[in-house]
Design a protein around this nucleic acid. Sequence first.
DNA 1: CAGATTAATATGTATATACTTAATATTATT
DNA 2: AATAATATTAAGTATATACATATTAATCTG
Lengths: 233, 233
Amino acid sequence: MTKPQFRSWQSVQEEVLRRIHAREWPPGDLIPNEADLAEEFGCSRATVNRALRTLAETGLLYRRRKAGTRVAAQPVAKATLDISVIRMDVEARGQRYDHRLIARKTTVPPTAVSAAMQSAPETAMLYLKALHLADGQPYALEDRWISLDVVPEASNERFDTISSNEWLLKHAPYTHGDIAFSAVNATDVDAQALGCATGAALFIIDRLTWNRSDAVTKVRIVFAPGHQMRTVL
Amino acid sequence: MTKPQFRSWQSVQEEVLRRIHAREWPPGDLIPNEADLAEEFGCSRATVNRALRTLAETGLLYRRRKAGTRVAAQPVAKATLDISVIRMDVEARGQRYDHRLIARKTTVPPTAVSAAMQSAPETAMLYLKALHLADGQPYALEDRWISLDVVPEASNERFDTISSNEWLLKHAPYTHGDIAFSAVNATDVDAQALGCATGAALFIIDRLTWNRSDAVTKVRIVFAPGHQMRTVL
DNA sequence: CAGATTAATATGTATATACTTAATATTATT
DNA sequence: AATAATATTAAGTATATACATATTAATCTG
């Protein structure tokens, strides 16, 4: 009997997954080290490393130097959501995208906004409110504050032909950000814009992006009723 | 002048990020190939490969064989959400976790459930309804259907000391699944269990997990009002 | 025996080399 | 000029080797 050959890191990964699912390596179990697995699989340690490292990134394995590799006892599933520009989302559904600028003004933001963006309380920012449409129907309502200190060029942009969403991606790079998903009842204003009943449960995304230590923009996107954000595990 | 040395894939990645953020390599731009970058950075091609491959995984670069590597014109931000067992979420907030079983019965599910799980319409499943508590306050309401064909041992488990959530992770492995986030208005039943007003906007997670071609469980988790799911970009 | 030192170990990473694969560009053929 | 065959290119991957680093285990020392 010759030992099986696993020639690619993907095939090694599949075999490791099989053993985990088959409970040959039960949750919490310490699995053989890379060198031994490489020997067993008939491949190099680098190949085993790539396979195991990738699985660790998904949360299914837990690795520590010297301590070895364990099957996660309670795998923390990592769901990766793709946050693209809204136009792309709509077009991916095979619908026609359109957007309408509802408000555009330069003003001092509420303290909650200036505090979150860590800007001086009396500094004016650019405020935008826009409605995104899919096949002519309201899809999402966007409320946005843009720091004019960080993105002064925004002052000169009208945002009627291009959404702030896309304009910022092109003109204001960010290094990091945070994002939160939640649910709110539609306010009268939301209901009016989205064409739904006041109080309807709406899915919302709040995002705050930074360029190094400067807050670039803070945006809340309120989706029309029934919106789902989905992904695979 | 000696050329700068980038000895680790992380430092190469940082330099590449710097160039992207500084617009030295603007969105859509074709960047030099791996061999040239390796030469420039004074490291091996494998090191450059690791740096660029990792950036491509985050959506900031777009790579194709022969075509080369481009800075993404419209970077699709990948937000990774950690979906752990609810107990862990609650404990991570520094709160005391508890749960209460509200219902447990073996019955034929609604057609919507059996259809989603691709099981025969008249097959009975185990239905569980449980309330998760944080510091004694309602945190989330769980509605779950478990396939007894796939997980027969579930019949013998009472789920009063361990939540179905955790029990399944330990006893019913899954190969893949899909997950959806959305918002609903609280029904009377939800409101009663969660101690909120009927109609309140609630954040929900719907999850369906599979073991190869068999649906293992379908669950809806309805969170108490105000719940946020957050992550970084 | 507590605490510090040292050794051992598994993962993490860098490198040179070689080959594979997908996509494109070029050339030959009809 | 359209089509097919061929060459070229850049990323993708495998391998052996070497060394780094975090962590644990063993040993020494007061």
